[in-house]
Design a protein around this nucleic acid. Sequence first.
DNA 1: GAGCACTGC
Length: 694
Amino acid sequence: MAFWKPGTVGPGSEVERSVTETAQDLITSYNAATASRSLEHQRTTLPAYQKRKVILHRLNHSRVLILVGHTGSGKSTQIPQYLDEAGWATGPWMIACTQPRRIAVTSVAQRVAQEMRVQVGAQVGYSIRFDRRILEGKTRIKFLTDGMLLQEAISDPLLSRYSVIMVDEAHERSVNTDLLLGLLKRILRKRPTDLRIIVSSATLQSETIKSFFADTLSDGAGNDTLETDPVSLLSLEGRSFPVEIHHLSQPTDDYMERAFQTVCDIHQKEPPGDVLIFLTGKEEVNRLVGQIKDYGSRLLHGKMQLNAFPLYAGLPLVEQMDIFSPGQAGTRRVIVSTNISEASVTVDGISYVIDCGFVKIRTYNPDMETHQLVTTPISQASATQRAGRAGRTAPGKVYRLYTKASYESLSPHMVPEIQRSDLSPIILQLKAMGVENIMDFSFLSPPPIPLVSQALETLNALGVLDDQGGLTPIGEKMVGMPLEPRLAKMILVSGDLGCSQEMLSIAAMLSVTSIFIQPPGEKTEASEAKAQWAVQEGDHLTLLNVYNAYVERGKSSGKWCYRHYLNAKSLERASIIRSQYIALAKKVSLPLVSCQGRVEPILKAIASGYFDHAAQMQGDGSFKCLRNGLTLHLHPESVLFKQSPTWVVYHEVMETTRNFMRDVTAIEPTWLTEVAPHFFKKRQIQPRPRHEEE
DNA sequence: GAGCACTGC
């Protein structure tokens, strides 16, 4: 393996245009096409239409309206139109409607524009990262991700352009939705008369949200212009079909086997209709798809045939699209999916759902400072949501691979994301929005204290927060950047080290997933291809190497990427993200300089961001974390896996079968004390003893 | 020698 030098490129020549269509675009146009019939009729038959007057009336008397609306009620598309028709967007005012996901923002905006017979970007617009279709002064209804509205709050803390803000899908409890609700509660106190909030949520969460808002609004703070109930709750019926629920009579210890048996039973005994199966991960999905295909191939001709499709986020686009193309007549389709089908992707025409009852969730352990990916039982809310996938277009059936008693013992909801995340970026974001002390912020579900204190410690160690918890000069520059604090730190110091161009590329590459692709059956070729990019310094410089080669290719060689087992889509996204970082870097006057192939400045910049993620190799080939003494291992996907670096820094630790360091760079230990003397002086480079191992 | 659910700025 060679050392890094600029322009280290793998072999390859021709330049091809990259594919610009994404699966999301295709799904959006697919939905738009099926939805174009008799718009007016569809609008007036939606459950939301029956409640139009009530909704508008309530909004005149309550500052917060909580809508319990099930799928198919038409709330996301209709309510913004009712508000517009009722005059909530006259003069300078706008109506905002937030969604947790980009795809929902663009498809709902398209649908509403179509119903209003206007162009997207005119009276109806949307705003998501890297794509903004808003006409200032003309756009009245604006759809946006909740993350995007949070960004707007940095420059406009009172969100003063909006008369009504509707937060959709609040029951999903994403970090951004939770932050937004807390922020809106604060804004309501400062805008007592001219702001209305609509929160749409599923049943059980709605009471929590109601009391969350009620306790501020009933304390007499400027609520005299409105009558009686400052927080109002309204239920909208959905328009879905009944779903028959089956539980196991005895618990199973092998849901994979039961899932397979259930598919076979359905195929033999039930009338035509497609099947959706929920499993926990890619590996399980592929295994079951194989089994079902195998079974399907042995079916007699003349009988109904069976075909199986995998569905998970990392699936190549072409294969994901297979699911959305119409199936063959006389064939039952079985979609074997991860949790992506629970809320993110909707597959139409499902009559049977098989639910294994588990989900993989990512959690953060503040004591070890590690991330874990753990398989846990789902919540009752998730079980209901999964079941509902069978009743979207016709009555359906759900087969739960657990007992009725197990269902009843499930917790009503998942632990919200904010209670199991690394809070250090979140604290910075709150600072950007003017929340000085995180303990003063009103959280719908407050994060546990250990998470808060660990995040504050980390930010203090990074030199972002001073000992009083205030922003340092470097912290001021970091605030508002959509970057993890460690990455922001290494970018900011790279200006002085003379390698900001390189660090911006590395940070952009770390912000996207799956740069290297591994098609099934081409494992050897893929790892050989990756080895050609590998450099001895480690994964960060390898990523830089790939990015530079991609730029030299003119950024648009789909075929070239494919031949080198690189993900063209991810590289394209990295390049867009990099230009955003450059714009942000200019705002804080960061000098944009290149180190012209010198490697030491880059490595020192990396060390400055990750110094608290340093580890030393032990005699047995494992590593010991300098900060907390935890035993760590190089991930086999790291380019350093077969090397023997003595000292490394890492991006993060992911605990699966062991504690694996992901994205690792070899360093000189002397750099650590050089870039962070305060940190190592305080700790005297003594690993903190861990009681568990003693 | 592993094998990562999902989303967002």
